[in-house]
């Protein structure tokens, strides 16, 4: 039971709104200490895992200079212009399209996209551009909501597309897990049973993006009213 102290530290830390990094560190130290590790051993284990997991952070860091550069020269502004050309495009439809594309790419085993690689430079500006092209200037809260949904599309698309491809992380992990236990399970069967949830995830995104489009229309109306020339 005492081993659960790490989870309690995390819950308390989040409850008190402490710095997340500090909470994680404290939880690790507490867990290590109750399981009999010395402080130096805990630091060693932390350091070892921190270094082997650098690859998680790597793509985001590598992407920043080029994304920053393109934004400096008007990538977002251009996205707005492009969206203005299409009458069909709405923020919700752009985001839904990305969800589907992401699911298909993951199901085919091609990891294309990502928060730094696609959402910040392309998906979010295109979605914002589509909303601006339709409704004019948007309130800040609306812009935040559009961006948050673009990030959600990346997560939902990649999580619920991945498990259909047999040679990728999750399926390999499950296969290896059952092999250790000497239980015969086919990768194909596991991939097949990922499909219903993938379809449901896309349907739910379709519903959420429609709600998003309606909210944008509702929230943008008063802002556009206020921006009309001649009104005090």
């Amino acid at each position: 039971m005492i081993k659960l102290i790490g989870i309690i530290v995390i819950a308390a830390g989040f409850g008190l709104r402490l710095n997340t990094l500090l909470v994680v560190m404290a939880s690790g130290i507490a867990t290590g200490l109750v399981s009999g590790m010395s402080f130096n051993a805990i630091m060693g284990e932390f350091g070892r895992l921190f270094v082997t997991n650098r690859f998680v952070t790597l793509p985001a860091v590598m992407m920043l200079p080029v994304v920053g550069l393109l934004e400096r020269y008007g990538l977002r502004e251009r996205a707005e212009t492009v969206m203005r050309r299409s009458a069909e495009a709405t923020a919700g439809r752009v985001i839904l399209f990305y969800t589907g594309a992401r699911q298909v790419s993951m199901a085919l085993g091609v990891n294309v996209g990502g928060h730094a690689g696609a959402v910040r430079p392309l998906v979010a500006p295109l979605a914002e551009g589509a909303a601006r092209a339709k409704h004019g200037d948007l309130p800040k809260a609306t812009v935040e909501r559009i961006r948050a949904h673009a990030a959600a599309a990346e997560n939902v698309g990649s999580f619920f597309g991945e498990d259909i491809f047999i040679a990728i992380g999750a399926i390999l992990l499950m296969k290896g897990f059952f092999e250790d236990l000497k239980i015969e399970v086919s990768s194909w069967a596991m991939a097949l049973w990922g499909i219903p949830t993938a379809v449901a995830a896309f349907a739910l995104m379709a519903w959420r993006t429609r709600v998003l489009d309606r909210r944008i229309a509702r929230e943008a109306a008063p802002a556009a009213e206020a921006a009309k020339p001649g009104t005090p």
Partner: peptide, 25 residues
């Protein structure tokens, strides 16, 4: 600082696994 949070969490997961937190849960 949020940039290094995923790495710190991966490290925490490793410590949890070593301590056997999962079996208790």
């Amino acid at each position: 600082w949020a940039l290094i949070l995923p790495q710190a969490l991966a490290a925490l997961g490793g410590l949890f696994a070593r301590a056997g937190v999962g079996t208790v849960v």
